[in-house]
Amino acid sequence: MTDPHTAIRVLVCEDQALVRAGFVTILSAQPDMEVVGEAEDGRAAVRRAEELNPDVVVMDIRMPRLDGIEATRRLAGPDSTSPMKILVVTTFNVDEYVYDALRAGASGFILKDAPPPELINAVRTVARGESLLAPVVTRTLIGRFAEHLSPAKAPASPERDRLEVLTPREYEVLLLISEGMSNAEIAAELVIGHETVKTYVSRILTKLNLRDRVQAVVLAYRAGVAGNGDRT
């Protein structure tokens, strides 16, 4: 039985009833999760999220009345006083949706055809504040959408200047984050402990005043240091 005092409280927002029911069934079956509400369109998603204050909002992109991108922006965007953790789940694996979802403030992005264990892991990851980008998204799409924001090799950009506060090791960890590596993969790459990686990630986010790994990825690309193979 789910313990309401420790469970991850989830709001499921999806316009297709069968898909929504599937998400609810999968997540409700987890001992550490509680589905506290559902929404069938974007306006309902915003209203229910504000009423329920869930730990994680599972958000579809294409919904009637208000799409998931705008709903995400209202709940987690720069104008939000208390940004919520939004996990975007969609069938659309294309640049514009990744760009729009992350720019709107999403903490994670996975595809609807991901197997149930990936959905479950994604909710847990976002709930922990670690954020999640499916490797296919990070490695093949994020670089392209970030290039729309600033040149990949922008010299002496304000974003690059911000990185000067990082130690060489923190800088190296940031580059590995920008390649879509998980904490476990970074630990293996650098031959250090998982908890040590978590400490480095926490320090990076604090020093750069970033909310999560998603923002770290975007900053690395804006600064022109990601995707160039330079870890020195």
Results as ranks from 00 to 15, higher is better:
Ser28Glu: 15
Arg139Phe: 03
Glu70Trp: 00
Ser82Lys: 09
Glu70Gly: 00
Arg43Ile: 02
Leu210Ala: 02
Asp3Arg: 04
Met84Thr: 01
Leu149Thr: 10
Thr206Glu: 02
Met63His: 14
Ala122Pro: 07
Val173Asn: 05
Tyr97His: 02
Ile61Val: 05
Arg9His: 06
Thr81Gly: 07
Leu208Met: 10
Ala220Thr: 07
Pro54Ala: 05
Arg9Ser: 11
Tyr97Ala: 00
Ala226Asp: 07
Asn228Glu: 10
Pro151Ser: 11
Glu118Pro: 09
Leu176His: 08
Asp230Asn: 12
Glu38Val: 10
Gln215Trp: 03
Leu75Gln: 01
Val214Arg: 05
Gly229Met: 08
Thr140Asp: 09
Thr91Ser: 10
Glu147Lys: 11
Thr90Pro: 00
Phe109Cys: 01
Ala154Glu: 15
Arg144Leu: 09
Ser28Arg: 08
Leu133Asp: 01
Arg20Thr: 07
Ala122Thr: 13
Thr140Gly: 05
Ala49Phe: 08
Ala223Lys: 02
Val214Cys: 07
Pro64Glu: 04
Leu18Ser: 05
Ala146Val: 13
Arg124Lys: 05
Thr81Met: 06
Glu130Gly: 06
Ile26Asn: 13
Gly37Ile: 11
Arg65Phe: 09
Asn183Ala: 11
Phe23Thr: 04
Thr232Asp: 12
Arg65Gly: 04
Glu195Gly: 04
Ser28His: 14
Leu149Asp: 05
Ala39Phe: 02
Glu118Arg: 08
Asp113Glu: 07
Tyr221Arg: 15
Thr232Tyr: 14
Leu52Tyr: 04
Arg211Met: 13
Asn183Pro: 11
His148Val: 13
Pro168Phe: 07
Ala76Pro: 01
Val225Glu: 09
Asp3Val: 05
Ala7His: 11
Met63Pro: 09
Asn228Gln: 06
His148Pro: 12
Arg211Gln: 12
Pro4Tyr: 15
